[in-house]
Structure formats: structure tokens, C-alpha cells
Write a protein that binds this DNA or RNA. Structure first.
Lengths: 200, 200
DNA sequence: GTCTATAGGCAGATAGAC
DNA sequence: GTCTATCTGCCTATAGAC
């Protein structure tokens, strides 16, 4: 058995475990709300070991966004693969947010958007790219929805896509403060109700 | 001329000036993104002087939210005083957010909502109260709108009020990262279009 | 009310042994 | 790869002079 195969079974590798812990810390406390010491403590390693894997906090932050964006893109691809009407895809999209919120976490990039002015430039760029990618995917879904007749909306698909991202991020932000995922669900339902062609 | 009268003309008092600077710092960088040193530098005073006015950062933070909430309540009262249809009040409400965003700032409580898990309890409570107050005001406006015929919405007025707060906070969060207030305007227009009874 | 000086701790980061 | 040890700097906060 190779080392890689072994890792796949019961060890994700230190670099990956560092990201898991750091990701949760950013989503819960923010990038300016945790330190290398916090990660080291949770993993029972030293701060020096962290610096071996990620030279600095900025590097770690950049890697976090990249991985998060990759996972999100995979989730969107999975929604596409499932097929179904566009309106159903929008509901599945909102459900992605809900699953994050249920772990008492904010969207990684939503959290970083709040701290945007304090982030190093590479992290800023990665956050923007994440939102751009989400917007692009939603725009496609909305256009498909016009064709399959499941979705309706006034104005352009781009503006509608942006409205969806903004609403879900904001609903997450507020609902998490209350510790009430149900607030997010209600907001998502209200939002999507406005996009449902059924009652048009 | 009394000392107070003098202050009203060209001096807001040190405590007030500290809050002005701190408020901007929180709205731009977050509560965990600035220090007493930042305030002291901008005001050309020492950190020790800050501690005379606000014993600790948590005290300052609490005072910031209280003042912000008071000002916001006054702005809402002003909107009510202006009268007009409920839909117009909703537009005026969104405009309050836009004016903050134009200064490249996040809503104070929206920013603190992101950092919620790192805040001392008194600040958490004050943030929630701010949202509760906004929701209550919006609910009243929405109910008035149903009566005056300018507003329509599916579901209850409470859910609708929450959707409005969430959408505006989220639109602010995202638009500020892009440095494009126009994104917020578009989102606000899209949101309010869904509440306009004109095309029902 | 504002200052100088300083305490005590934690931040991110590095050197070098193992 | 991970450790111990350490550095430098910044953080919040306090004591005490003026």
C-alpha cells in the first residue's frame, strides 16, 4: 500500500488538516479573529510546524479561498449533473448555504468580504473571483429557467444573479447572529418565491 | 457663552471624536481590525487618553452600537415624519444604507454580525437589538403599505421585513468588496420592485 | 484630561536541532 | 516534518506625573 493510499484512508495529511481547522476558524471568527496558535492548539502541533506548511497567514488564507472555491464549483457541477428545472437548481443552491449555516459558520467569502479592507491583495482577488463565479453560474441557471419556463424575473439575468448572491449572503449573516438557521430558510424561500414562474 | 455652547459650534468633545474615528474604523476594518493605537494616531492623542474616556475596547464598542442605533432610529423617525406612501419609505430606508456604503463603509451592525462570535456579550445583545428594531419598523411600514395600497408581498409582514434587512445587508457586503455602490442600488431596486403593488 | 512610561501578553515569524 | 527556543513588534491596559 502506498503512502498516498494510506492517506486516503485515515489521514488527510497535515496540510489538509490545517486547512480544515483554519477554514472553520475563519468562517466562525473571521480572518482577523484567530491566530496560528489557535490552529496549533486544536491540532496538537506547534506554530512552527504550521509555518512549514504555510509560510504566513496570508498564504494560508489564499489557499483556503482556493480550496473553498474549488469545492463550491464541484457542488455547482453536481447540481447541474442532477438536472431538473432551473428553479430546483436555485433551491439546491440556497441549500448549499444552509448547510454551511447549520454548522454555525458564515460563507467563507462572505466573512472575508466583511474584512475585505484588511486583506492582502491576493486574498481580495480570490474573494472577488468566488463571487464572479457564483454570479456566472446563477446567470446561466436563470437563463435556462427562462427557457424551461420554471423561472421568471424582471430585469437582466445578471442583476437577478447578483440579487440572489447578495440576499443569501445577507440572510446568512443575520441568521447566524440570531443562531436561527430558520431565518435563513425563510429568506431563501421568500427570495425564490419571487423567481417562481408558477404563479406568474 | 457657555462651554457647552462653544462645543456645539466647533468642538464635539473628545469622547465624541473618539467615537467618530472608531466608528469609521469598525465599519471599514471591523472590530477586530483596528486598535486603540489607530484611533490615537488619527486624533493626535495617546492611547492612555482613550482609556480615560472608554475603559476598554469592549466599552467603546458598546457605546458605538448604542450611538449608531440612536442615529438610525432618528433617521427612521425622520422618514416617518416625511410621510408619503409606504413604498417610498422603503426606498428611503434603502437609501440610508446607500449613503453609508458610499463612504466605503459597511453597516456598523452588519460588520459586527460577521464578527459576532468574537464579540463580548453586551455588544452581541446590542447588535441583535439593532436588527430587531429595524425589523419592527419595517413591519409597521409594510403593514401601512398594505393599507395605503402601495405595497404588496406574499407571506407575513415579519418575514418580509426580515427579507429586506437581509437583502440590504448582503448587498452592502458584496457591493463594498467590489467598490461598486451601483451593485447595491441595483439589488435594492430589484428587491423593492418585488414589493411594489403598482404592477400587481 | 492628557501625558510618559511601562507592564504583561499574544501576534506572526525565524533559526536550528532532531 | 516537527520540535524548542527565541525575536520583534503590537496589543490592551494601568500607574502616576502634570
Amino acid at each position: 500500500m502506498t503512502a498516498v493510499a494510506h492517506r486516503e484512508r485515515d489521514d488527510l495529511g497535515t496540510a489538509s488538516r490545517i486547512m480544515d481547522v483554519a477554514e472553520a476558524l475563519v468562517q466562525v471568527r473571521g480572518f482577523n479573529g484567530f491566530s496560528y496558535a489557535d490552529i496549533a492548539t486544536q491540532l496538537h502541533i506547534t506554530k512552527a510546524a504550521l509555518h512549514y506548511h504555510y509560510a504566513g497567514k496570508a498564504d494560508l488564507g489564499g489557499a483556503l479561498i482556493t480550496r473553498y472555491a474549488t469545492r463550491f464549483a464541484a457542488a455547482l457541477a453536481a447540481i447541474d449533473a442532477d438536472g431538473g428545472p432551473a428553479l430546483r437548481k436555485l433551491a439546491a443552491y440556497a441549500d448549499l448555504y444552509l448547510r454551511v449555516l447549520r454548522e454555525n459558520r458564515m460563507c467563507l467569502c462572505g466573512m472575508l468580504a466583511a474584512e475585505y479592507q484588511t486583506l492582502p491583495q491576493p486574498m481580495r482577488d480570490a474573494v472577488i473571483t468566488f463571487f464572479d463565479d457564483n454570479e456566472a453560474w446563477l446567470e446561466t441557471v436563470l437563463q435556462d429557467g427562462t427557457r424551461d419556463g420554471s423561472v421568471k424575473f424582471a430585469g437582466g439575468s445578471r442583476a437577478a444573479a447578483r440579487l440572489i448572491v447578495s440576499t443569501l449572503e445577507g440572510a446568512m449573516l443575520v441568521a447566524r447572529s440570531y443562531g436561527e438557521p430558520a431565518r435563513f430558510q425563510a429568506a431563501a424561500e421568500g427570495l425564490l418565491a419571487g423567481f417562481a414562474a408558477g404563479r406568474a
